[in-house]
Design a protein around this nucleic acid. Structure first.
Lengths: 227, 227
DNA sequence: TGATGAACATACTATCGGGTATGTTGTCAA
DNA sequence: TTGACAACATACCCGATAGTATGTTCATCA
C-alpha cells in the first residue's frame, strides 16, 4: 500500500537532512495540486503544465518526482485510497451488528468524500478509466494493483450489507445492484458538494447525516434503527 | 428545443429528394457514433477522427454537418435531453398524487438512462463541464440554453418530491440535498449498467424497478405505497 | 573546501489533434 | 444535358502538449 518513489531508490543515510524533510512535502504538494487539476478538468484535459502552474512551478519539478502523467495520476489515485483506509482504520476492530457497523463505516466514508473530494474524484475517474479500458496495456498494468486495492475496499461494505441482509436489518432484491446504488449515494458528494463560505463542521456533519440516511433507507434499513 | 442545422439554412424545394431523406439519417448516425465515443472516452480524450473512424468515414463528413467539436458535443447533449422530454411526454397530463406521479416519471427516466445511456452520459458530462466552467466563453454561451433546458427537466422532479413531502408521502430534511441524492440514484445506471448477453426486456425492467425503489426509499417514501 | 548529487528550471523535440482549404462524386432542377 | 450544389474525402496547417536533454543552484559529506 506504500507508494514507491521514482526508481524505488532509498536513502541509506541515517537521520533526515533538509532534502529528506522537504521531499515528502514537495511530493505531497504536487499530489495535491494534481488532484485539484484532475478534479476540475479531468485527466485528458489536464496538462502537466497546468499542474505546474498551479504550483507556481515548472514541468521539471513534476517529472523529477513522477515518471509520467499516467504515473502522477496513479499516485494521486493511490493517495486517495490510502486516505480512505487510514480513515477506516480506527473502526476495523469495531464490534456490534453488521448494520450498525455499516452506519459508522458509511459515515466515515462520506466524510472522506467531502473533506478529500479532489482525491476521491480522481479515484472515481481512475476506476472509470480502468473499466472502460481506454488506457494502454502499460497503464493497465500500472492500475491493476490499484484497482484491486479499490475492490477490496468496496468489499468491506459489500460484506457488511450482505451480512445485514441475512440478519434481517436490510432488505433488497440483488446484492450487486444494491451495492452499486449504495456507493453511488455515498460517493455522490464528490459530484455535487462544494464548500460554502462560512460553512461550519456542524453543517458538514448535517450533510453527511443526510447522505448516510438516504443510503440506509435505500438499502431497506428500518427507520430509526442502527444508532 | 429543435436543433438548428449548420448555418440554419432550409431547403425551399417541395418534397424530399434522396438528399433530404438521407440527411437526417446521416446526421443521426454521426450523433450516435459521437455519443458512443464521448461515452467511452470522455470529451477531451475523444478526437474527431475517433468519431469518424467509428463511422468508417473521415473528418470531412463530420465537419460538413457540425461546426466544431464543441458543437457536435452540444448537439449530442441536446439529442439526449430531447429523448427524455419525448419519453416523459405521454405522462405530462397524468393525474393523481405527486408521489404516485413521481414513481411513473422516475420509472421512465431510469428506463431512458439504460436504453439511451451513451447520450445520457453525454448530458451528464455536459452539465459537469458547464458547472466546472472549463469551456471558453463561446462554448458557455452555446451551452447556456441547453443547460437551462436541463434545469427545467430537473425541476419537474424537484417539484414532484417537494409536493410529495408536503402531502406527507416523502420525508427528508433538505429539498436540494434530497433532489441531488435522488438524481444520483436515478442516473446511476449510466455509470454501472452495461448490457448482458441474452438479457431480456424483463431483466431490464427488473433492474429499473430496483433503482426506482431505492430512490423512493431514499426520499423517505412509505413502503408499499405509490402503486 | 571541494566534489557530488538532489531538486529543480530552461530549452527543445516530436506527435497528435482541431480546424481549414481544396478536390471529387453523385443528385436534382431547369 | 448541364450547371449548381450537397455530401462527402484528401491534404495540409498550426497550436498544444507529453516527454527529454541540458543547465543551474545549493545542501551535504568526505
Amino acid at each position: 500500500m506504500e507508494g514507491r518513489r521514482k526508481g524505488g531508490r532509498k536513502s541509506l543515510r541515517m537521520g533526515l537532512g533538509i532534502r529528506e524533510r522537504t521531499l515528502d512535502s514537495s511530493r505531497t504538494a504536487i499530489l495535491e495540486a494534481a488532484a485539484r487539476c484532475f478534479h476540475e478538468r479531468g485527466y485528458a484535459a489536464t496538462s502537466i503544465d497546468d499542474v505546474a502552474r498551479a504550483l507556481q512551478s515548472t514541468k521539471g519539478r513534476i517529472y523529477h518526482h513522477f515518471e509520467s502523467k499516467a504515473d502522477l495520476f496513479a499516485e494521486v489515485f493511490r493517495a486517495g485510497m490510502d486516505m480512505n483506509y487510514v480513515a477506516l482504520e480506527p473502526l476495523r476492530n469495531m464490534k456490534g451488528e453488521a448494520h450498525q457497523r455499516w452506519r459508522r463505516f458509511a459515515w466515515v466514508h462520506v466524510d472522506q468524500m467531502i473533506t478529500t473530494r479532489a482525491f476521491q474524484r480522481v479515484v472515481w475517474m481512475g476506476v472509470e478509466m480502468y473499466l472502460t479500458g481506454a488506457p494502454t496495456p502499460h497503464q493497465r498494468a500500472l492500475f491493476e494493483e490499484l484497482f484491486e486495492t479499490r475492490s477490496r475496499y468496496g468489499d468491506i461494505f459489500r460484506t457488511l450489507i450482505a451480512e445485514g441482509r441475512e440478519n434481517g436489518h436490510f432488505q433488497f432484491a440483488n446484492l450487486s445492484v444494491a451495492n452499486q446504488l449504495m456507493f453511488m449515494t455515498l460517493n455522490s458528494p464528490i459530484f455535487w458538494y462544494s464548500p460554502r463560505t462560512g460553512e461550519t463542521r456542524a453543517d458538514i456533519e448535517d450533510l453527511i447525516a443526510q447522505v448516510v440516511t438516504c443510503a440506509w433507507r435505500g438499502l431497506g434499513g428500518t427507520e430509526g434503527a442502527g444508532k
